[in-house]
Nucleic acid binder design. Structure first.
Lengths: 245, 245
DNA sequence: CCAAAAGTGTTGGCCCTACACCCATGG
DNA sequence: CCATGGGTGTAGGGCCAACACTTTTGG
């Protein structure tokens, strides 16, 4: 892959970054998987988007690079949530062969640092670098290489904690104008439970940073829903107030 | 350090594990630092207990090895909380020289995986492998190598979140029999705020897994306090019930 | 008897939950 | 006019915070 000895273009074959990019498609929580073509076979297998880091690349920068290569997105909040380093990660020789082939490097052991994001499905641009990407329901994952299944399970647990502590990430996911229903469905799918409609309305109206607009959703075969927007300034004002107590 | 090519005794010079071992001493939150002797000088400097991992060593196993080498403890709950991999970690040449000297390996870039634990101060046994260890108040840290100051700051934020989600870790820290005061002081020091005595008593009595014993603390120049114990079975029973809803 | 810490209840506010009906729109 | 989802209020319970006095012990 690399063509020079410039450390910015030289891979560091000991540490990788994998991104668990979550999104919602057909009312299901999905994860973005990229195709992995095994040399010499015509099977198509899937894996988490990820890559070895470069010699002088920061972990966060590597995660944003992978995000961008896989989706075309740039400013989605990404969270490092755990590192996986079991020596048995590379127990499957087929996985190692594939990686050695893809990186042109001799691979021994690899520690991977896992990142998490909530992404808009629609904005997805298919990357030509790592093969096409595909949203796959969490509930119907194919067999994945290394410990990617374990990483995804940890990510699903983690995003709920993250969303509890930093509700703004859900607004990066939604369009600028959204209805309370869209917001509620998003929560329901991420937490995998039903949420009471009235209580949810009350809650959102009490927050202060979810504000009504005068616009409504048109063309629905039922009463039209009001659009709301996320007030980022108010959100950060409230957050700072809490932190300084 | 290593003497053979056995992978169990060969260091993997790309990934290290650092442990932020927190404890309470003189009513202050402290972190365990180990001495680092710089070759050729008689200065004594300090660092977090940590080490490169071995070729075939799991990250968690490395963390427990470091815990044991630094304190003699074996079964303290350790939590991986973040990895640090800025290429600028190794910007200070003195730090790199020291590490190369200590490991007898050429060091380029290192990613470190940071772990956290709450340890009993009293049980501390001084390790002879990495030099003596010393409890140092968080509020008065010396200059530390690499990004150890940043790692400690992240650990202090993290332990509060961890304790909120997994209250049992505080009972691993306390003696088997403890008074409500001891428990409360522990919380006060970790969260760095005062806690109302009556409310705290009520709360602990309502939990179900903090149970009275018939024993009392003797020899105090004031009314003697009742000892309580942690009911581990009840704790896990309640925890499972919550998770299955 | 004094100092020092142990222990104990009540109240109000906030937030969460449960719960049922009318409204607006497109077809 | 009907099907579909949009939108609304109240009451009860649990948890938290604030707050002051009596009890026990050793010296």
């Amino acid at each position: 892959m690399q063509t020079t000895n410039n450390p910015k273009e030289t891979l560091y074959p000991h540490v990788s970054v994998d991104c668990v990019l979550l999104g919602i498609h057909d009312e299901q929580l999905c994860v973005l998987l990229t195709e992995r073509r095994d040399a010499g076979t015509d099977r198509t297998e899937y894996k988490l988007p990820g890559s070895l880091i470069y010699e002088t690349e920061d972990l966060d920068d590597a995660a944003y690079r992978i995000l961008n290569e896989a989706t075309g997105l740039k400013r989605v909040p990404l969270k490092q949530f755990r590192s996986f380093g079991s020596p048995r990660r590379t127990a499957n020789k087929e996985d190692v062969l594939w990686l050695e082939n893809a990186s042109k490097l001799k691979i021994g052991r690899i520690i991977t640092v896992a990142y998490l994001a909530l992404c808009k499905v629609k904005r997805l641009k298919i990357s030509d670098r790592y093969g096409p990407a595909q949203w796959t329901p969490i509930a119907r994952l194919p067999r994945l290489p290394f410990d990617h299944e374990e990483i995804i399970a940890a990510a699903v647990r983690e995003i709920r904690v993250w969303l509890d502590m930093e509700p703004s990430i859900v607004f990066d996911y939604l369009p600028q104008l959204f209805t309370v229903s869209q917001l509620r469905r998003t929560y329901e799918i991420i937490y995998n439970r039903n949420i009471d409609v009235r209580n949810f309305h009350k809650k959102m109206n009490s927050l202060g940073y979810v504000v009504q607009t005068d616009e409504t959703e048109q063309g629905m075969p039922h009463r039209s829903a009001r659009f709301y927007r996320f007030d980022k300034k108010e959100y950060h004002r409230m957050r700072n107030k809490l932190n300084t107590i």
